[in-house]
Design a protein around this nucleic acid. Structure first.
Lengths: 243, 243
DNA sequence: CAAACATAATAGTAATACTATCATTTTTAA
DNA sequence: TTAAAAATGATAGTATTACTATTATGTTTG
């Protein structure tokens, strides 16, 4: 047990070190000025995460954020043209961070099934450890993704924004998962739908656990990871070799 | 083929007749004044569906709706205290209508598996036939559910609104599906999570089909119904009798 | 036919989601 | 070192939103 904890801790430390030299890359059309390029920019990101978590995205405004960081509304508009773009930035950052973890932790696993299970774990788990390698609090950001992510694409502008590449990171992540599914069982007919269902469904189960507990089996003892691991393994094993 | 079409047609007709005597019941705390009780109320519902579909819920306002139906903003406020409550009304109505169809079409099916499959079909299919038994266009309302439903519960007020009973219809529908799952296979460990995943996941696959086709297998020839039917049957058959 | 009720018209408010302009401070480059 | 450039701050302004309140007008019904 202690060994396991040490391993986990070590893994986290390795990632923190790697990431402090790496920069999570977000499509640059999302922002006017890169928030990573200045102190004010970083404060905007740091405190927008905290404020959106606190009051919800719908009540969040640049004016309130300005007040919180002792800066001016008009200065924030020099980084993001709207609060919607800021949400796109935060979600792209989050998915790029998850993608990084997924690729990193599955890279050297030769067994395809174990690899897929590890990927599902990374994608569906509750974020409990703040990597603190930066100004971004990943635990809080994870809550924002659960509560607000859908709002980033459930808009009338989704098609034009998709063409601009604003959802590339998310789609790439799902395609990686889809490819792992297909590699494990090339007979399974719906790898992309399964992959997108795992990602979106996991966010949904986390939400239900908090707010509509009567329509989920997930609670303190059962995790969305267990539900989707069981689901995926059962699906892929039973269709293997035309069984 | 002709017989099948006639059967479908007949079923629809039976339902239209039944429903013209029945009233879809929506929790009455959602509205100030029942929109079914007056001509203006019905016009509010009819045209709010069309206008939300046209410009999206985010751009929708009571002022614009008033202009569209030749009525006054202030009159609409006598029916609903906010556009959020109107969305809750529309979604509750929709789920109650789906629930009615599900209960109706599965009632006399003795085979549990066939019954569950029928239920999944009703819950996940594209609405293609407008029942036109009323002022409500179900095809358009279905599109609204796909594009806007999440916004009705992804709010800071979700817990208090849940206590008020605003999501009862939706939860009841999922519980019905969960019970059918459990009846078919009592060994399966996650009947509620599977049921909620089918409902939410189906809306999501319909959305992906329209806007992010690269991360779904659903298209003109593959339906969300097929994906979730295959998924459910495989899951429930493989865990049956501890297999 | 009068009271009750429904709807319409108008006005008003605080907040939102910005844009524009100009002043001040900080950084950088010659 | 100093001047220009860049970043930030302060202020003001606009159209719209999401309502509330009041009063007027039309319509039903007992």
């Amino acid at each position: 047990m202690i060994v396991l904890l040490l391993c986990l801790q070590t893994n986290v430390l390795i990632m923190v070190n790697l990431l402090s030299n790496l920069k999570i890359s977000v499509p640059d059309k999302i922002f006017i000025k890169d928030p990573e390029s200045s102190d004010l920019g970083k404060r905007i990101i740091e405190h927008s995460i905290l404020l959106i978590d606190e009051i919800g995205f719908d009540s969040f405004t640049f004016k309130k954020l300005g007040a919180k960081i002792g800066s001016n509304e008009s200065s924030i508009y020099r980084y993001f043209e709207s609060k919607h773009k800021l949400l796109l930035y935060l979600t792209s950052w989050y998915w790029a961070w998850i993608e990084y973890q997924m690729v990193f932790t599955t890279y050297n696993i030769p067994d395809k099934e174990k690899q897929l299970l590890k990927a599902i774990e990374v994608l569906t788990r509750t974020i409990e450890q703040d990597m603190t390698f930066s100004h971004i609090n990943e635990i809080v950001l994870n809550r924002i993704i659960i509560n607000e992510y859908s709002k980033s694409y459930l808009t009338k502008e989704v098609d034009s924004e998709n063409k601009e590449g604003y959802f590339e990171v998310y789609k790439r992540l799902i395609k990686r998962l889809r490819d792992m599914i297909s590699k494990l069982n090339s007979d399974y007919q719906y790898p992309a739908s399964l992959a997108s269902t795992i990602l979106e469904g996991s966010l949904h189960q986390h939400f239900l656990k908090e707010h509509f507990s009567s329509i989920t089996d997930c609670d303190e003892s059962v995790t969305p990871t267990q539900f989707f691991t069981n689901l995926t393994l059962t699906l892929l094993n039973s269709t293997k070799n035309g069984r």
